[in-house]
Design a protein around this nucleic acid. Sequence first.
DNA 1: CAATCGTATAAGTATTCGCTTATATATTCG
DNA 2: CGAATATATAAGCGAATACTTATACGATTG
Lengths: 108, 108
Amino acid sequence: MTAAMQLTNVLKTLADPTRRAVFERIIREGEVAATGLVQGSKVSQPAVSQHLRALRDAGLVAERREGRHIHYRVAPKGLGPLIDWLGHYETFWAERFANLEKLLKESE
Amino acid sequence: MTAAMQLTNVLKTLADPTRRAVFERIIREGEVAATGLVQGSKVSQPAVSQHLRALRDAGLVAERREGRHIHYRVAPKGLGPLIDWLGHYETFWAERFANLEKLLKESE
DNA sequence: CAATCGTATAAGTATTCGCTTATATATTCG
DNA sequence: CGAATATATAAGCGAATACTTATACGATTG
């Protein structure tokens, strides 16, 4: 799998708002079982399960089985393709947009 | 339009490899007419035109008319929603993944 | 073992997407 | 004005997407 394909996967996976909401909840809660993610979600359990699979396939989350429960956590390396891509073009934006580092600081 | 919706637009727009390739060419070439982008593209002129519209609608490129030609250039602010989103969750990743700034430096 | 709980998969469907060909809308040139 | 150039829009189509309900699988419990 090329870097471009990985980036495409990450972008496609994060582009869906429902799936991104699941991802953000995992970020905030640290480690959550799928049940916990279904609670408070607008969509059904299978839909959440499908989103979790997509997130895992994209390398954005990892799972840990504990009895009947499967706990999901963020796999920060999954964002690597996105970070790399932004960094790769940073020099082109720097000329007219300061630079990404500065932006990251300002956005906090 | 909420911030989440803008982010969704940016992610969706960049998620298509053909469209992202158009965007990357605009980045590299600085300012290009649509004709130049059609040359060397795998897809037809209308397809390129549709991608350019999507990029403009997402705020990722700006255009400047000059006679019959329309020159496209990157609108760096268009990446704002993406940068902001990454920055917003930076603190959550920092614990286990150093921080985005460091990553950006390393990725050069 | 049987019932139950947590999660995944299967199958079907409506919507969205990216592409094509054909046509329309500027803008310039002779 | 009429022809040519640069770009956009229209219409249609096949593939992908995100959801649903129904069912299967895996692990625990009584």
